[in-house]
């Protein structure tokens, strides 16, 4: 299949099954982009997510652009982004013209209540997997706990957490390294 069409259709599917925030997308990206298409490794995907967190815009769009760009530069980024937003455009236009009371239909509310359970399961599964591959040592556990508290209780803005965590990464790595190099010197 044409790679642009493939990018478009894969991200169309992902857009169609993204509910609420972009976080539940991660398992979907894993099974489509990493396992099926091999467009990125799991670690790369996590890095895209990390960058998507600290740049403006919708996380789903940021991640789609990233994956598409790495495959086929700007035109690949555009194809993937077009894919991820197309289901929204179609569905919203249909609902806005026909069913303005969509959100209060009982069957919709029941289905959503069920979907929220799936979203929770997917998010926690993604978190466990990310922790396993992303936390390498005690410093990592420390950063995780501090960032969790800071985010959950909204102590500091997300951007600042990202900046601090990145800075800590550089500091820790270079302190460990300089310690390890000392015995040789």
């Amino acid at each position: 299949m044409n790679i642009y069409l493939d990018l478009f259709l894969t991200f169309f599917k992902i857009g169609l099954f993204t509910f609420g925030g972009g976080y539940a997308m991660l398992p979907m990206l894993e099974s489509e982009v990493v396992n099926k298409k091999h467009w990125a490794t799991y670690d790369e995907l996590m890095d895209y997510f990390a960058v998507g967190q600290c740049t403006p815009g919708v996380i789903a769009v940021n991640t789609a652009t990233f994956v598409g760009y790495n495959k086929k530069r700007i035109s690949g980024g555009l194809a993937a982004t077009a894919g991820v937003i197309t289901p929204s455009i179609i569905i919203i236009i249909i609902i806005a013209s026909l069913l303005t009371n969509f959100a209060s239909i009982p069957a919709v509310q029941h289905a959503l209540s069920g979907i929220r359970i799936a979203v929770c399961v997917l998010i926690f599964k993604a978190v466990l997997k990310m922790m396993k591959s992303g936390i390498q040592d005690a410093y990592g556990i420390g950063i995780f706990i501090a960032a969790l508290a800071a985010t959950y209780f909204e102590l500091i803005p997300t951007v600042l957490i990202v900046v601090i965590a990145g800075t800590l990464g550089v500091l820790i790595k270079n302190i460990i390294k300089s310690k390890k190099e000392k015995p040789d010197a």
Binding site: A50, I123, V127, I141, I143, I145, T151, I161, A165
Partner: peptide, 19 residues
């Protein structure tokens, strides 16, 4: 690499918090 070493646990935490 060093930046991502620090960033990955923090991003896991943000997603955990949303979860």
């Amino acid at each position: 690499q060093d930046i991502f070493y620090g960033l990955r646990p923090a991003v896991s935490a943000m997603i955990a918090s949303a979860g």
